[in-house]
Design a binder for these strands. Structure first.
Lengths: 109, 109
DNA sequence: CTCTTTGCTACAATTATCGTAGCAATACGC
DNA sequence: GCGTATTGCTACGATAATTGTAGCAAAGAG
């Protein structure tokens, strides 16, 4: 399996502005992108398990996001089967960890 | 001006699951939501200035996101004119600050 | 009053996402 | 071998979100 994701670096809004943060915000601002990273935070998941974890996303979007996140270098399809965070993806995920406690405090405790 | 945003708490995916983080990830995963918060990180901006800062977003989405973020309690329409982060929104924005350095390192520096 | 800015909306067109179904490839038990 | 289950992934039409352009009423400055 393990098809190569498209190699062209396009579609990420802000990538031409020279402001990497804009490209990153655009990429993470696409539906289910944050959620996918979040669900992978602890352990790798198969695409089916990931779909289940993400409240039964349609496989169309899931696959699109997986390709994009893979091209960005945040996740990878490990040889043992299943998607997992790369070293870079793990660093990114660390950034969102404080979000958990914030969310608790936010939505009526 | 300052119309009341819709008062019903709907549309935020995951809000019924009892997992606030899911609702937050869904809200922030909508297009331009992260970007809007980012652009307001330093100082309040008028809706027009915000539109300019966000690469000329269509006012339709901008207004929708502003309403949602306002309902969530992250931003507010200050009396002096212009949108600004609330105390809660400022805390949320702090969480994303490390993202800046990460983005630099990510996209070929 | 005129002129400008602000926050916001209408409308049609485009794009993204959804939901269901299904495929080829691989791996298992038998 | 055979059946069967799982994995990663795609096709397809239907629905929802986003876009782009134009414009509005209200408030302020001159």
């Amino acid at each position: 399996m393990a098809k190569q994701p498209a190699s062209r670096q396009r579609g990420v809004r802000g990538s031409r502005t020279g402001r990497p943060i804009m490209a990153l915000l655009d990429l993470l601002g696409r539906r289910w992108a944050l959620r996918i990273l979040w669900e992978l935070r602890e352990a790798p998941l198969t695409s089916r398990a990931l779909r289940t974890a993400c409240d039964e996303v349609s496989p169309t979007v899931l696959q699109t996001r997986l390709d994009e996140l893979r091209e960005a270098g945040f996740i990878e399809l490990s040889d043992g089967g299943g998607y997992g965070l790369t070293l870079l993806g793990r660093e990114l995920c660390e950034t969102f960890m404080p979000l958990h406690r914030f969310a608790e405090r936010w939505q009526g405790k």
